[in-house]
Amino acid sequence: MLMKHLIAILALLAAPAAAQDFSEGSEAKTWNLYAEVPARFVATVVDPLCELTGDCPENCGGGKRQLALLRMADDVMVLPLKNNQPAFTGAANELLAFCAQDVEVDGLMIDDPDIGAMNVYLVQKIRAAGTGEWTTASKWTTDWAAANPKAAGKGPWFRRDPRILAEIAREGYLGLGVEVDKPFIEEWLE
């Protein structure tokens, strides 16, 4: 751990004062987002709750927690919000296998200070640092299918997820109660 801190701090001292450009070498595909910036960098996969508070379970929480990327070049803790699937899916599952390991990632930073978006990221590809094989960050739906065998069927996962269906049954699509939903849906789907 001491050596990692030394490497990070020495890299930081060697870096220019201005914000760094991590787009060089990136092969990230556009999502046509207003504030997207391609970014490829080397980082350590960390548990942000552990980093910030010292509450550090084994294996980064074993899949319960969000994970972050401690970027080697400047010691910035990047928070991935999204994996590579256009399916309302996050990135923690993609990173878990690399807990406490150094990885190289490629994807899109979202940089929109007007609404507070800073150092948040969409992971498209990941590989152990120094290796050649990229893995596309698209395993979330496979994980979900394995965890929800009774929800097998047609259509995307979010139409079949038992927890989501239970919430909609309880509070409606608008979350305001099924009695509010009914007249709205009649008009909306007219």
Partner: peptide, 30 residues
């Protein structure tokens, strides 16, 4: 909210976005 993938920030909060908020929360988005 941050990406603007579905439009302005005002449109991706509250009841209009509730079902999508369920999807994203269950889907592991922070």
């Amino acid at each position: 909210y941050f990406s603007g993938v579905m439009g302005s920030a005002d449109a991706v909060v509250g009841s209009a976005h509730h079902t999508c908020a369920l999807w994203c929360s269950a889907g592991g988005i922070p």
